[in-house]
């Protein structure tokens, strides 16, 4: 990262992030049309990669490449949907708390803080265990545990915007509260929400893969988490069948790394101190969005 970056140029890291994320999005969108049925028994179990099966076969004689590609669709779809839902719940709760203030704020802040200190995985496991397995259960469990952090960040930000003149003007001119929050305040949070969406998607993918690895996903479906579940269940490690878990892991990490790079780029845009070294290079100053934290 050079010290002379303006807000307009993209760094190589950002380009790498964009490339990784778009590549996996493309695989998830059209990839499944080019591979066979991922659950079909196509060859002897635990075959090493070969010309017929580029990434080998699983312990149940399924094609690893097909499973990885089809798994991308399930995992990324749930990840992005949950990411959006999580940010929406967080933004609405945070904005409501900050805007209404008083008893509502106090109550919502308590709820946010209590949810924040609860360790996520045990809670997700115990809820998921009671619900019928499937994508809907998975999405609901992830959304339920993922929102409080975003609510806290949005609340702090809205508190600072709320005290500005244009919001006071709206209040005086009698705009309804919901309209002020949705139309006047939330658009000012665009870059913050973008970064939150990336973080939430990252979280949703990671947590989903973890829960499915535990066996709490839909085991008849194909996703990255269930791929890893079957890899351990079929004792792939004991027979050295690295091809059953390496492709999926590399995909999870590739998407995760790409999303983190995009997140860093958005953060650097919002927080000039991380981007420009010391007092050199004045450069164009983007709108400071993190001013209200104190």
């Amino acid at each position: 990262m050079s010290a002379r970056n303006s807000t307009r140029t993209t760094t190589p890291a950002t380009r790498l992030g964009l490339t990784l994320v778009s590549a996996f999005a493309l695989i998830a969108l059209i990839g499944p049309f080019f591979v066979g049925d991922p659950t079909a028994f196509v060859a002897a179990p635990l075959q090493a990669p070969s010309a017929a099966h580029w990434l080998g076969t699983t312990g149940q004689g399924q094609d690893v490449l097909a499973q990885t590609v089809v798994g991308a669709r399930t995992t990324l779809l749930v990840g992005a949907l949950v990411g959006a839902v999580v940010v929406a719940i967080g933004a609405l709760t945070g904005a409501t708390a900050a805007f209404l203030g008083g008893a509502v704020d106090a109550a919502l802040t308590w709820i946010i803080n209590v949810s924040l200190v609860m360790p996520g995985l045990p809670l997700m496991v115990v809820i998921a265990a009671w619900l019928p397995p499937g994508p809907v259960t998975m999405a609901a469990v992830l959304a339920l545990t993922g929102w409080p952090w975003h609510a806290r960040v949005v609340r702090a930000q809205v508190l600072s915007i709320r005290s500005r003149d244009f919001v006071s003007a709206c209040i005086v001119s009698g705009e309804p509260t919901w309209r002020i929050v949705v139309v006047e305040i939330l658009p000012n949070l665009a870059s913050l929400l973008g970064s939150a969406f990336i973080g939430a998607t990252l979280y949703a993918i990671g947590a989903q893969v973890g829960l499915e690895f535990l066996g709490l996903g839909d085991l008849s479906g194909v996703s990255w988490g269930t791929n890893l579940y079957w890899a351990t269940n079929d004792s792939a490690l004991l027979v050295g069948a690295w091809w059953t878990f390496v492709p999926t892991g590399v995909c999870v990490a590739g998407v995760g790394f790409g999303l983190s790079l995009l997140g860093f780029a958005l953060d650097a845009r919002a927080n000039p101190r991380l981007r420009v070294s010391g007092a050199s290079g004045p450069g164009p100053q983007p709108t400071p969005v993190r001013r209200g934290d104190d």
Binding site: A231, V252, A253, G256, F257
Partner: peptide, 10 residues
């Protein structure tokens, strides 16, 4: 970016 448990598997 790798899941903890995948690191462990590798």
């Amino acid at each position: 970016a790798f899941p903890y448990f995948w690191m462990a598997m590798a």
